[in-house]
Nucleic acid binder design. Structure first.
Lengths: 195, 195
DNA sequence: GCAACAAGTCGAGGTTGCCTCAGGTTAATG
DNA sequence: CATTAACCTGAGGCAACCTCGACTTGTTGC
């Protein structure tokens, strides 16, 4: 047992916390500019810390990515919470989806990791992904209950569409970002046919 | 000038051709199982060839990927040629899109490379991508001319949707493959509204 | 046949990034 | 202020990338 994924935790000791924070900040910056496969040694040295220290706090790349994206995804889940019970459930779903695409493509390579984590429990990001899944499914269900979205669309399919859009956004790094239009096309495609 | 991308060519000498073919075969197998970032040294040794020989024929990873996928994409373009003038242009477009998704996701990492090559001329795969772009655009135009596909859809957007589907298929490696349903949703989303 | 040469082959080695671990340091605690 | 668990460090083994100079061989023209 206990093959649970390692989830990074902010240390209790002052020096540990300092370094943990420094590494996390450096990692965010590096991921932003170099993608999820940024050099960990660069991150460590940017943080002014030896490589062993980075590995102490974040024993795997996945755990570092998870820690670096935790806040953003928590925000996304919270946003979904605020949107439940919205008077226009389709508009709520749309708004959340737009938000989700942005968070999923925070840096190059993230969508792939999240898509993986969605259905793989042995992954640091799995818990957060599962929470997002619940949030999204709830908003979808509401929009469907109101007859605004085709009833045969499953949450899994919704996340595939979302991931596709995020992936397109990722690729956009330099040049045209097709994701807004992608999402628009998808959204117009999944609304329930007017009777 | 002459910063044109290097395109691998089958050598004239017998020994060169033998090794070129062996490397290519090993590369196809390796990409299939390990994705586009398979180890080049493994490929070389699988092919029974020194690493330097691999680099002689394929000086960059991109050139090897291009050579390994050239046939498949040529077939795709040819298929489009056969489909032009099809009596049902929407059905033709659909069939080609299904085919395209499969070719784009021949191995993990390929879609990303192709999406990159689509608009970056300094890339070995650019020529082939441009050809595909023309093929797809032609089929799209025909379907639109027949009033079967929403007229505001551009070829670039079509390729974004296609790439998204292929990416979803790539991720499917082990487990559910959401791409057929993805494509179905997209297709139902882009057909022109019946009047 | 065979000389000459362009084309091809080889693999050691420099470089970078990953990750581990043994040994030294230090913040918290009572 | 002694104790100790938590923390820090960086050398080093490993794998993959890619280059380059020395060597070998297929091809061509005579």
């Amino acid at each position: 047992m206990d093959d649970r994924p390692y989830i990074a935790r902010r240390p209790k000791r002052a020096d540990g916390r300092r370094n943990y924070d420094a590494v996390l900040a450096a990692a965010r910056k590096a991921f932003e500019t170099s993608g999820a496969d940024a050099s960990l040694e660069d991150i460590a040295s940017q943080a002014g810390v030896a490589i062993g220290t980075l590995y102490r706090h974040f024993p795997t790349r996945a755990s570092l990515v998870e820690a670096a994206t935790r806040d953003g995804l928590e925000k996304l889940v919270a946003h979904a919470g605020r949107l439940t019970g919205h008077p226009d459930p389709l508009e709520a779903l749309k708004e959340w989806m737009r938000e989700a695409v942005i968070h999923f493509s925070t840096f190059r390579g993230l969508v792939g990791i999240l898509a993986q984590s969605m259905y793989d429990e042995g992954t640091p990001s799995h818990a957060m992904c599962a929470a997002m899944h619940r949030s999204g499914a709830e908003l979808l269900r509401a929009a469907q209950a109101a007859g605004r979205v085709r009833p045969d669309l499953t949450p899994e399919e919704l996340f595939d569409l979302l991931s596709g859009a995020a992936w397109v956004r990722e690729q956009a790094a330099s040049g045209r970002d097709g994701s807004p239009r992608f999402l628009q096309l998808v959204l117009e495609g999944i609304v329930a046919a007017r009777d």
